[in-house]
């Protein structure tokens, strides 16, 4: 990464810190949602983007983070930070427990194995009295959108710095090597299992904290909202739209898609879901490798970049 983009990114972050003093309440709601979604996309990127292991089960970590905060705060009246820690512990344990067996699966088989995770955990949680069974848990109400915003922003910065470190480190090179050719990576002395599990744990950690923040902010959770299957799809789309395996791609992808969704939902409500779908279809046809790749591609080849993608898609 050249120094200039980093400097600009730092300036943007500093500017974003002051948003709560300028933005309206509605804007704050949108911003917190968008920041948390960006964290999910960025966290997904650590495993999905760098190793190419596409997980459709990350919302299981989100749900555990949600429940960690809710159980600590609603059942035991502990402070919020304890809830975040509990969420992290639950999610990391879960990542280790499921990562060790299923990360041995490759390609589509891994994706299929992750598909059922969120639904299974939802079913388990809805039978636990400590988690409020299927009725859900009510957290104390607090009117502190500024705090939630700054927490979300902080988390996103931390998550992005982690991805930046990953992209430059030996660890990250190992992950990319796994993506390109796992057998070759193994031959080169990379302990692929450990690398993949560490990537999954990092991903689970950030996802869980996003879940905890969301739980306290929204103040009511139930299994259906915590283990929402559509969330899996959304984070994958956002990361892939922006450019998987890059540092800023998932951020840009999630901000742009959040903004488009919000704009469509408030201006032409009935057709919003349809148009959102069209945006994604077009993106896959014209820029299957994401925004980050498109910027470079268009600079190098102009409109021919899109033609080439269409040809590669055999349309």
């Amino acid at each position: 990464m050249r120094p200039l983009p980093l400097a600009i990114a730092a300036v943007v972050v500093v500017l974003l810190v002051f948003v709560p003093w300028l933005a309206s309440d509605v804007m704050m709601q949108f911003a917190i949602d968008a920041l948390l979604l960006a964290v999910l996309a960025q966290a997904w990127n650590i495993l999905g983007g760098f190793t190419g292991y596409v997980s459709f089960g990350n919302s299981v970590f989100y749900g555990l983070g949600t429940y960690g905060a809710a159980i600590a705060m609603a059942q035991f009246h502990l402070p919020f930070w304890v809830g975040i820690l509990l969420g992290i512990v639950l999610a990391v344990l879960c990542a280790l427990l499921i990562g060790i067996p299923i990360l041995r699966l490759r390609g589509p088989y891994f994706a299929i194995a992750t598909l059922g995770l969120a639904a299974a955990m939802g079913a388990i949680v809805s039978n636990l009295p400590i988690a409020g069974s299927n009725i859900g848990l009510v957290l104390p109400l607090i009117r502190a959108d500024t705090m939630f915003y700054e927490l979300s922003l902080g988390l996103l910065v931390l998550c992005t710095l982690t991805v930046l470190w990953v992209s430059k480190s030996r660890f990250g090179m190992g992950l990319v090597a796994i993506r390109e050719d796992e057998d070759a990576a193994g031959t080169m002395g990379i302990n692929t299992t450990v690398f993949k599990i560490v990537a999954l744990v990092l991903s689970a950690l950030f996802t869980a904290v996003a879940g905890s923040i969301h739980a306290y902010w929204i103040s009511f959770i139930d299994p259906a909202s915590a283990f929402d299957p559509t969330l899996n799809v959304r984070m994958v789309i956002m990361a892939v739209f922006g450019g998987p395996g890059t540092v800023f791609g998932p951020l840009v992808g999630s901000f742009i898609l959040s903004a488009i969704y919000e704009y469509l939902a408030s201006s032409i409500s009935t057709a919003a879901a349809l148009l959102f779908g069209i945006v994604i279809v077009l993106a896959v046809i014209f820029m299957p490798r994401g925004l980050a790749n498109m910027i470079g591609g268009v600079r190098a080849r102009g409109p021919r970049y899109f033609l080439q993608n269409i040809r590669e898609n055999r349309l």
Partner: peptide
């Protein structure tokens, strides 16, 4: 970081659209 600036612009647009 042109990308982040675009996103910020989109956010600002949204803020203005509700009154």
């Amino acid at each position: 970081m042109r990308h982040s600036m675009t996103a910020l612009g989109a956010l600002a647009l949204l803020a203005a659209s509700t009154s």
